[in-house]
Design a protein around this nucleic acid. Sequence first.
DNA 1: TCATTATACTAACAAACGTTAGATATTTGA
DNA 2: TCAAATATCTAACGTTTGTTAGTATAATGA
Lengths: 202, 202
Amino acid sequence: MTLTTKEKIFQAALDLFSQKGFSGVSIREITRQVGIKESSLYNHFKNKEAILEAILTHFRVDFSKTLPPVDSLDKILSTTEPETFLKTGHSNFKQYMEDPQGQKIWRLLQIEQFREPFAREIILKDFFGETVDFLEIVFQKMIAMKKIKAFDPKILAIEYQYPVFSLLAEYNILKFDGKDTTQVESRLNQHIDFFLEVIRNE
Amino acid sequence: MTLTTKEKIFQAALDLFSQKGFSGVSIREITRQVGIKESSLYNHFKNKEAILEAILTHFRVDFSKTLPPVDSLDKILSTTEPETFLKTGHSNFKQYMEDPQGQKIWRLLQIEQFREPFAREIILKDFFGETVDFLEIVFQKMIAMKKIKAFDPKILAIEYQYPVFSLLAEYNILKFDGKDTTQVESRLNQHIDFFLEVIRNE
DNA sequence: TCATTATACTAACAAACGTTAGATATTTGA
DNA sequence: TCAAATATCTAACGTTTGTTAGTATAATGA
């Protein structure tokens, strides 16, 4: 699986931007990593800004694939216990966390969120918004099926997901320094267990 | 209350770094905002890096003052209900959130966390670590006083504080665009209420 | 008061920046 | 097979970068 020059530029830029930020990386640094002269880059991207834009756009499209479609939820939830459902979701999430590409995109969004309006939009809408909206529907359905206590599903969505975001932030910092992440991972498990205990219908 | 030139440089640098990041701001941009020539800056700071270092160090000292001393906890907790204690803490926290200086430092830490090891250390130790350690002691004492249910105090600390970090991140993005933040603020209140309901000792 | 110290200025530096023009080589499609 | 399109190269451009040297002015302390 060989990459085109454009893809190599994309990857090198993502790698460098996610460490030093957009302003901290030069065209020459990117092309040096790819193995071409700096002028050649302009055959593939209009300018430096266009590389970042391509990365952010690609991520936006990519992220929308990680959640199961809402139409299939009734079927899934009728055959799956809340515990299994959440733990499966956690497993998917963990996979995303451990993927180096996912870590780079997360870091890039963190670094650029206050310089790049598009990054803010992705964090707010795709990251916070979409996940919470999805979970709200999930918990609403679980309540209708009397599988969990009848709390406000929106509140449940936040109570479940927001700690996960913080744990993910902590995880990515530790991972960046190559430090041990088992504690954060066990905290994520503890969080899910705690949450399940709280919402359980006796 | 007039500022010295050094303080003006400090403030201008914090202001600009928190919007564009360290690499995105030039010495000339800082000195233009202060109203001096770029060479004059070097009478106050050794180089550009030293300004960032001064900002991060100042924040570290500053942040350690926001939590009440552990020695005074027994006295406070014996006369204060959990609900009042947490809501007072929330009020202090909100004040910090609404302070423009606090927002700038938060943004700076977010932007620089992967370029600057010191920023990572502050986020991990001061932000995550210290707050959770403090809350663990608080909940441990509340449990000993039989004021709340006997959950693992460390888990309670995380369940309480980690959603607050995520809400704070969301709050700061909205605030940066001048958008409405009442929804995030009400979510913070809902979180506290939910948490109190869960840990209440019947 | 006067020497010293601190702070501001002008001017310049070498290096790095993003980007372009134009020549050369490689790949593609009729 | 050969013209057209695409990708790479060398070389250079005008700016901006962080920083320094040297000089003038203002504040400080004996």
